[in-house]
Structures are given as structure tokens and as C-alpha cells.
């Protein structure tokens, strides 16, 4: 595999625009993404799959550029695709052949010599936990097995960038957990970057360290999840009943805490070090307010996503 500099971003988008059937799908995307695992989030129709397809050279940009490890996806599409493994969202198979035949073909097309391709194919099937089913015809695979076979063909040649389009779609909870574990292992191997396109926030939260949120074909937000988590102060979400909630918040605020009313019965409280939980109960008792529930929370990916969607 050709080497690329560590400093080169995994993906660079420079005013990328894509029009399909005359309609603008991606509208001037600009970003330099370099995380180990990048989540591509957005509601249905936001342009996630179109972005992946553009990176693979399936759709030509109508304006701007996209690069994978510094290789322009149009001018140097072949070099860019050498570094990529792709797992499509939809069923994508070759009818009437066995799992081994299917993955080996894909390995050979990626440049592995036949003997190495066969060896890696067996390894890939054992890696995804389908060693026993590898000689079965693809047509006999269950949906979950087909997803794993698609994953096997995407990793068999050891790509430097793995593009996964909704890999957990339609999987039951154990199969989903297994798929996410496999993706995490690829990420943690340190040899491959992962771009996970999904509308399932939990999947992205479990796997990714960076998130690119798309909305209506534009970038709504791009953030480092870990940095975001670190930056977000831990707060207490207090659920109350009775009397005047605002007066309670004002009283707590007077003692140095930051308060914000959240919803009908909730108050977000960031306590200073000098203040303890028992102080909240004391003030609540004085204000004749019941504290029904009290949770320590941080802003979740869902909060980040919702903020991006509102913006």
C-alpha cells in the first residue's frame, strides 16, 4: 500500500458540490477530517450516502474537490480507491457463488495475488465470526450474515480507510453489538481509519471520536466528540414537583450555582465545589418543593445533534 503522510487529512472537502438529476444534493462542503473514526450523521436525505459515493468516484462533483489521503477523487480516483474499503448500505452481492468465492474475488480485484487473497478471505471470515459458513452459497445467508460478509469484503484487503454505510441497519441487538465490536477493532488496530455513516446516534457515539453532521446537503457541525465531552461541564438534572420552580432556581443560583430551567419540571444545575447535594435538598424543603429525581449528566451526542439540527 502506498504510504501517505500522517499529517495528511483522511478526507478533505473543498467547496464540494454534487448535483444529481439536476438537484443539488451536496452544497459546498468544506472540511478537513482526520480522526481515527469519523461519524457521518444526519437525517435521511441529508447527503451522507451521496458524500460516500462521491468519495468513491461514483458521482462526479459539479464543483469543488474531495480528496482521500491527499488524492483527488476525480483526477486520482484510482489511487484514492486503492486505499479504501467500502461496505454499501444496500444488499450488494454476486448471485450463485459461495462466501469464500465472493470475498476472494473482491480481494483479488483490490490487488491481492490469488493465494494471498484466498488466505486473507479465510481470515476475514473467521474474523467476522463466519468461519463455518464461508463455503455456503451467498443466497442462503441470513440478513445479518450478509452484512458480515459485506464487512468481510470491505476489510479483506486491509484498507487504510473503511467507508461503512449504515452497517448496523436491520441487525438484531446481538448482531449489532458484534458489528460495532468489529468496527472498533479495526479502529483500534491503528492501521485504518473508519468513516461510519449512520442515522443511529448510539452507534456513532460508541465507535467514533469525531462527528460530521450533515443537514440538507451542508455541514451542520463538525466536532471532536472526546473534546466536546471534556469541554462539557458535568451538570445535575433535577426533576421537581410543586410550588415555584423559578424561586427554587433563584435561591440555588444565589449560592453560586448555575441554574437553567429545562422542560416543564426540570432544572439543570451546575454546582460549585463549595455546594453539595444536601444543600439542594435543604433549599427545596424551605421552598416546599419535592425533588423527585436527580441525575448527573453531560451533553450527549444527541444534544450535539439536536443543536446542529436546530442551527
Amino acid at each position: 500500500m502506498p504510504e501517505t503522510s500522517q499529517a495528511t487529512p483522511v478526507i478533505e472537502l473543498d467547496g464540494l458540490e454534487v448535483r444529481l438529476g439536476g438537484r443539488p444534493i451536496l452544497k459546498g462542503l468544506s472540511a478537513a477530517v482526520s480522526g481515527r473514526a469519523i461519524g457521518l450523521l444526519g437525517p435521511n436525505g441529508a447527503g451522507k450516502t451521496t458524500l460516500l459515493h462521491t468519495l468513491l468516484g461514483f458521482f462526479p462533483p459539479s464543483a469543488g474537490r474531495a480528496r482521500i489521503f491527499g488524492h483527488d477523487v476525480v483526477a486520482e480516483g484510482r489511487q484514492a480507491r486503492r486505499l479504501v474499503g467500502y461496505m454499501p448500505e444496500r444488499d450488494a452481492f454476486i448471485a450463485g457463488i459461495s462466501g469464500v468465492h465472493y470475498v476472494r474475488l473482491m480481494a483479488e480485484l483490490s490487488g491481492l495475488p490469488p493465494s494471498e487473497a484466498l488466505e486473507r478471505t479465510h481470515e476475514a471470515f473467521f474474523y467476522v465470526g463466519m468461519g463455518e459458513a464461508r463455503y455456503r452459497n451467498l443466497d442462503t445467508y441470513s440478513f445479518g450474515m450478509k452484512q458480515l460478509a459485506k464487512f468481510a469484503q470491505a476489510v479483506v484487503h486491509g484498507p487504510r480507510l473503511l467507508l461503512l454505510d449504515e452497517p448496523t441497519n436491520g441487525l438484531d441487538p446481538p448482531a449489532r453489538a458484534r458489528m460495532l465490536r468489529l468496527i472498533r477493532q479495526v479502529r483500534d488496530s491503528g492501521t485504518a481509519h473508519v468513516i461510519l455513516s449512520s442515522h443511529l446516534l448510539r452507534d456513532v457515539e460508541e465507535v467514533c471520536d469525531e462527528v460530521l453532521v450533515l443537514k440538507d446537503g451542508a455541514i451542520a457541525t463538525y466536532c471532536n466528540l472526546e473534546a466536546e465531552r471534556r469541554a462539557n461541564t458535568k451538570f445535575i438534572l433535577v426533576e421537581t414537583r410543586g410550588a415555584d420552580r423559578a424561586a427554587f432556581a433563584e435561591e440555588v443560583g444565589r449560592l453560586g450555582a448555575e441554574c437553567a430551567l429545562a422542560g416543564e419540571r426540570r432544572i439543570k444545575v451546575v454546582l460549585p465545589e463549595a455546594l453539595e447535594i444536601r444543600d439542594l435538598y435543604r433549599i427545596a424543603a424551605a421552598q416546599k418543593i419535592q425533588i423527585r429525581r436527580l441525575d448527573y449528566r453531560r451533553d450527549s451526542l444527541q444534544d450535539i445533534f439536536l443543536r446542529a439540527m436546530e442551527g
Partner: peptide, 8 residues
């Protein structure tokens, strides 16, 4: 897509 996602 599987074929064309490769250098082909």
C-alpha cells in the same frame, strides 16, 4: 458498487 469501489 463493490467492483467500482476498487481500483477498476
Amino acid at each position: 458498487p463493490l467492483y467500482l469501489a476498487r481500483p477498476l
